[in-house]
Design a protein around this nucleic acid. Structure first.
Lengths: 236, 236
DNA sequence: CGACGATGTTACCGGAGGTAACACCCTGGT
DNA sequence: ACCAGGGTGTTACCTCCGGTAACATCGTCG
């Protein structure tokens, strides 16, 4: 009971604004406020924050959250879309930048890494796949990342001549590149092995076929790694 | 963690029991049996299967599972390691195959895709990141995939001459390639847009720099790009 | 004024992971 | 033969989660 304050709402008079039925415009602002609270909690507790915690942070109780967002997924989706906008728009803009192709790719990579660097918890939320799907596959990429993958697919399709296999390649590459940047970016964010610029270079080099172009190593330790077949260490 | 209760386990006492053959099928067989049951349930219900369901499938009750595996994570880990062996060994063998580099890469890709194709539910389990981590990043790749990433890193480090940046590049690429194959393979498994062979080609092409080599499309219908001036290529 | 709609509450449900306490049963020492 | 002990298993319970039903409240409209 420490919250009553924001009862006073204002502004829209039904006479002057007959179009909107909700004279009590408390819906939209309240929703925003709830999303802000959820944002704070997730920044603090990570993407596993409970509905109770979010409600408490907002100064209200659970059912209100459910009235506004239906279920947890609805809340997360609303929250996600809110942040996705920024990252997705940035990536889209980077993809459309009138640069040399390599520079454009680097620009996109840098944009993504900068985005996840700025707000790691939000990034975690965006990239957290929903655990609801019971059967099969299909959610290695969270919705936000699927959108990014689609953007990449569209860009590849529209900008690069890949012959007859265009559609397939573009789609596979869109997913693949997104997953690549997701995994590599996650690792980079966790252990910070180098500067962002350097990381961008490393990934661009990979996409640029340096894996194919590099020379073989002289003859170092030839890959006869001692592979233990099925040893039974038993009780150790 | 199983710090409670049973502190004296591993009942084989070498001195008093020199035959070293416990007729009591105490631990190992039961454990295997439980893992088999868990495997069945997960094949059927997906990786979200509950401990109750697994216990029921095994014909016993929950606490026994907890005695054997500590907690759910322990069970999943045990189950994971069991299957990881196969996939990981296969990938490792593919990485060590004495082929031309491109053929080797294709071989590795095909090995992975064949593995996830064979048992999708197991693949889902293996690639499902544990949701426990509250803060920050670091688990975009599940443990099994981290191991694969390490194998790739090691292979790149040991086989390819990447100059001074060798370590960084190898590690970033290991993660990146793994994430790429994860995301693309997940999509492929879900929507089956093409044959496995074709998918292998698509991914190998991506890794082989076809993104860099392909020509521009003649008239990319870019909305607001009248001309391409020398835009400043940002950081150099 | 009364009706209505939106806001808020408490209390609850079913199911998840996890644990405590107890019962059985087989082995083995004296 | 008997009792102790460490394995097997059980029932019953805890806490916390997402989600919901039913009730209380406030403000506006007719």
């Amino acid at each position: 009971m420490l919250v009553t304050g924001v009862n006073a709402q204002a502004g829209v008079n039904p006479r002057t604004d007959p179009d909107s039925q909700e004279k009590r415009m408390s819906r939209e602002p309240r929703r925003e406020q709830l999303l802000n609270a959820a944002d704070r909690v997730i920044q603090r507790d990570g993407p596993g924050a409970s509905m109770n915690a979010i409600a408490a942070e907002a100064g209200i109780t659970k059912p209100i959250l459910y009235r506004h967002f239906g279920d947890r997924n609805g809340l997360i989706s609303a929250l996600t879309e809110r942040h996705t906008g920024g990252l997705l728009a940035a990536v889209r803009a980077a993809l459309a930048e009138p640069l040399e192709r390599r520079d454009r790719v680097e620009h996109v990579l840098d944009t993504y890494l900068a985005g996840i660097e700025a707000r790691p918890q939000v990034y975690r939320l965006l990239t957290h796949p929903e655990p609801g799907d019971p059967t099969g596959a299909g959610n290695a990429l969270a919705p936000a990342l699927k959108q990014i993958a689609e953007e990449i697919t569209r860009a590849v399709q529209g900008q690069i001549d890949l012959g007859a296999d265009r559609d397939l390649l573009a789609e596979a590459w869109g997913r693949g590149i997104t997953g690549m940047v997701l995994a590599a970016g996650d690792w980079w964010l966790e252990s910070r092995p180098c500067s962002r610029t350097r990381m961008v270079q490393a990934l661009a080099d990979l996409l640029w076929g340096r894996l194919a172009a590099a020379a073989d190593l002289p003859t170092a330790v030839l890959p006869t790694i001692p592979v233990e077949p099925e040893a039974e260490p038993d009780a150790g």
